[in-house]
């Protein structure tokens, strides 16, 4: 892209996603014929910088989890490009992809389901080390102890089983496992939504500490707008497989440009009792991702939809520097 005489470009982002599509076949009947596809992620592009914390917010069916899983190849992308440190990943064989599995780690939502109940904590964390052949066996014990310390667990946690821990502590183990292989990039998929309110803040603070100490790039996937606002530099809003808006978090929350972002922010319950009266309640429900609406996928619920919205798939329009909105009605909410 860059030519020798072009002005110095910004440093290349760590993760660069272009026109990513992840579809799942829908099979029916005794012969399991494919009768359609779930458009879980449908033509999205974004980037994540070095040590940047990017939030990904959306409701169920928005495709936010599939985005994270496609990046680490837990789901195979149907089309599009995923670049990591400049390297195109989509064409790589599983063996060629292996080193990138180490550089990109995922923290899952449910700390009760994501840890093997039959394994002790040292085996859970040690497994990641041995798969990637990190450190000699004799050194691994010390490394595991160090990781446990890093996530705020005592060293003797090593010899215990997952069921002996509370939800918050299990999530700490999940984080230690993800960090064991020294990733550059971590995807946190709803890491606090299964936890008690009083414990959520501990884990959010821990993730924040580790991100800045280790200089990690972080994709933080959540439906909770409050946590995203607290933690993220930039935020991506998804709806029905597509990106609606991307902006620096402060800007997105204070001056959202896409009607969906505005509705989402307005629908979130607030501790502020006076805010309740200005609520904009969206009509209807999220359409099926098997047959998404033509044009803009949000138009069926959008109070601002016009005739063109059914015909034009809105491109990502730069409404401000570093702020894009996929809405053709750019005159709104200026």
């Amino acid at each position: 892209m860059t030519t020798p005489d072009s002005p110095t470009p910004r440093p290349a982002p760590l993760v660069e996603v272009a026109n990513l599509k992840t579809y799942f076949p829908v099979n029916e009947g005794v012969l399991s014929r494919t009768v359609g596809h779930v458009h879980a992620v449908d033509d999205i592009s974004f980037h994540i910088g070095h040590s940047e914390v990017v939030g990904l917010v959306g409701e169920s069916g928005s495709g936010k989890t599939t985005v994270g899983r496609s990046l680490v190849r837990l789901n195979r992308a149907t089309a599009g490009s995923i670049r990591f440190e400049g390297q195109e990943l989509t064409g790589l064989s599983d063996r060629e992809f292996q080193p990138y599995r180490r550089k990109m780690q995922i923290i899952f939502q449910d700390p009760f389901a994501s840890l093997d109940p039959r394994k002790r904590v040292d085996a859970i964390i040690g497994e990641a080390l041995s798969i990637h052949r990190l450190g000699r066996r004799s050194e691994r014990r010390g490394r595991i102890a160090e990781l446990l310390r890093l996530v705020g667990l005592p060293e003797d946690a090593m010899a215990r089983f997952p069921h002996e821990f509370s939800g918050g502590q299990r999530q700490r183990i999940g984080i230690a496992r993800a960090l064991a292989v020294e990733p550059r990039f971590v995807i946190a998929d709803e890491p606090v939504s299964a936890l008690d309110v009083s414990v959520q803040a501990q884990i959010v603070n821990l993730i924040q500490d580790l991100q800045s100490e280790l200089g990690l790039s972080l994709l933080f996937i959540a439906h909770d707008l409050g946590v995203i606002e607290h933690l993220c530099d930039r935020t991506i809003v998804m709806y029905l497989g597509r990106i609606m808006e991307v902006a620096p978090t402060k800007r997105l929350y204070s001056a959202p440009r896409h009607p969906y972002t505005r509705a989402l922010l307005s629908a979130a319950p607030s501790l502020d009792r006076n805010a309740a009266h200005e609520k904009q309640v969206l009509e209807g429900e999220v359409p099926s991702p098997i047959n998404p609406p033509s044009g803009c996928v949000f138009r069926t619920r959008c109070p601002y939809a016009i005739k063109d919205c059914a015909e034009i798939v809105p491109p990502a329009i730069a409404v401000e520097p570093d702020h894009v909105s996929a809405c053709i009605r750019t005159e709104l909410f200026q």
């Binding site: 309110v197 803040a201 800045s212």
Partner: peptide, 25 residues
């Protein structure tokens, strides 16, 4: 402990931190 704008404390690095409750239920 609920994250909301303008709340929480600022640490020595200038980051906004959530008030966490120590321990568990």
């Amino acid at each position: 402990s609920v994250p909301r704008p303008g709340h929480g404390m600022i640490d020595e690095k200038g980051r906004r931190r959530l008030h966490a409750i120590q321990g568990t239920v």
